[in-house]
């Protein structure tokens, strides 16, 4: 896809996020919106996947370690063709296959159940290790929150990945700077994130703007060239990106917009879409 096409798709992913969370009357829009661009880049440009054959043995894998941002994940999967976009509003409803946090048994395209923070990265490491044991070339991607890396298990998994030189593993940290109780720097600072991963024998790529497709493209291209060590892409993003009243607001971490707010959110995204069409 061209960069413009990817930007337009990311905007559609954002519409899916606010629509699903509004319908659910619960969920996590902030971190879904900050990661909408990376979800889009992974599923529309980077990963070797086939929506018609979601369990293809040699596919690339993705584990959403920050599982609460399922709305962003589901929106990208639906738009990519894993299941109907029309089903997104069933998010968090009784009987829906779109559970509040990802469930691999029910949702096409979901490679691992997740949601309890710190655990997804370990599963991703296991998958990357399996590829190495079997001499396969698939790559494994996992997305973590910057608050999530306060979990000790993240560093257990990182120590192992560095030790085993898992160069088919790409860890992505969504550094939107906010967690439920406030700024990550105030709650329990994870900084410097890059130096920590460097110390765990990762190749570190800092992305100044993780909501910029060109910067994401450069980062993922670089990651693929790295041999002998896992890569971490630490991307600075804006929590709530694209919806004016949600941007950089910790309060929109885990709250659904009401009808009026939903209308404003859609109008915001409509404007973004129109501006992209003008290019």
């Amino acid at each position: 896809m061209t960069t413009l096409e990817l930007q337009q798709m990311a905007n559609e992913v954002r519409k899916g996020i606010v629509t699903a969370v509004h319908s659910a009357k619960a969920g996590h829009p902030g971190g879904s919106l900050s990661a909408a661009d990376v979800f889009t880049y992974l599923y529309f440009e980077e990963m070797n996947i086939d929506p018609k054959d979601p369990k293809k043995p040699d596919r690339d894998r993705f584990v959403l370690s920050k599982g609460h941002t399922a709305p962003g994940y589901y929106s990208a999967l639906a738009l990519r063709g894993f299941f109907p976009v029309e089903d997104l509003p069933s998010l968090r409803h009784i009987g829906s296959y779109l559970q509040g946090h990802p469930c691999m048994q029910h949702t096409p395209g979901v490679d691992m159940s997740s949601g309890s923070l710190g655990q997804g990265i370990s599963a991703a490491v296991g998958m990357a290790l399996a590829a190495k044991l079997d001499g396969k070339n698939y790559r494994v991607y996992t997305l973590l929150g910057d608050g999530e890396i306060q979990e000790g298990q993240v560093w257990e998994a990182s120590m192992f990945a560095g030790h085993r030189k898992l160069d088919n593993l790409c860890v992505i940290v969504d550094n939107n700077g906010l967690q439920i109780d406030g700024n990550v720097a105030d709650v329990c600072s994870p900084y410097p994130i890059d130096k920590k991963f460097e110390a765990f024998n990762f190749h570190v790529i800092n992305v100044a703007d993780g909501n910029d497709m060109e910067q994401l493209r450069a980062a993922f291209e670089e990651a693929k060239t790295v041999k002998g060590m896992p890569t971490v892409i630490i991307m600075k993003t804006v929590k709530g990106k694209g919806v004016s009243f949600m941007e950089n607001q910790a309060s929109w971490h885990g709250k659904a917009p009401n009808d009026e707010e939903y209308a404003v959110a859609l109008a915001d995204l409509q404007k973004v879409g129109e501006a992209l069409c003008q290019r």
Binding site: V125, G126, A130, Q153, H163
Partner: peptide, 28 residues
């Protein structure tokens, strides 16, 4: 030896790695 994986003293991570291995068809 190639099929024995020592995770070090990190049992939570070991269970997660086992889950990831199982998701690809291994029997850990």
């Amino acid at each position: 030896p190639e099929r024995h994986i020592d995770c070090g003293i990190a049992e939570g991570n070991m269970m997660g790695i086992a889950a990831g291995l199982a998701a690809t068809g291994k029997v850990p």
